[in-house]
């Protein structure tokens, strides 16, 4: 995990995450339940628990630069088990939106292989474009 910065924290970005998600990330008590049930945890350099800790310290940009928010499939496994009632899927969505709302796409629809487009159910594409493009 990156070192916790000693300088000024990006409190305005953190306020934005709180505004978009409607969640107070300081409620997280670092129990790690979220990470233990996350289906994508083994692919995450920064686990969900660490992501919450980083947000508590205002490290929004660092989290955004990681793969973690984009590995979150919004499966809600963590959210339904969080003992603090934190809606983590909303927090991950807010972090993604900080990038997407600056018109930064995570995937380029033109690069999707033609055969995949033909074979995929529409909900895969609609859901993917909603979650991963501006």
């Amino acid at each position: 995990m990156p070192n916790i910065p000693t300088g000024a924290l990006s409190s305005s970005l953190l306020a934005k995450v709180a505004e978009i998600s409607g969640q107070n990330v300081s409620k997280c008590m670092q129990c790690g339940t979220c990470t233990s049930v996350c289906p994508m945890a083994c692919d995450m350099e920064i686990t969900t628990r660490k992501a919450m800790l980083m947000l508590q310290h205002g490290m929004v940009d660092e989290l955004l630069a990681s793969k973690t928010p984009w590995l979150c499939a919004s499966c809600h496994s963590c959210q339904v088990r969080c003992p603090r009632g934190l809606e983590l899927t909303r927090i991950m969505e807010a972090v993604r939106l900080l990038a997407l709302r600056k018109n930064i796409d995570k995937i380029n629809p033109r690069e999707i292989v033609r055969e995949d487009v033909i074979d995929m159910p529409q909900i895969a594409l609609v859901a993917g474009f909603r979650k991963l493009t501006a």
């Binding site: 692919d43 793969k67 859901a127 993917g128 979650k131």
Partner: peptide, 18 residues
């Protein structure tokens, strides 16, 4: 469990593993 959902578009390896 989650099947991997739309991750197949952005992190296909993770989706396949799942």
């Amino acid at each position: 469990d989650c099947c991997g959902a739309y991750e197949v578009l952005v992190n296909p390896d993770a989706a396949v593993r799942q």
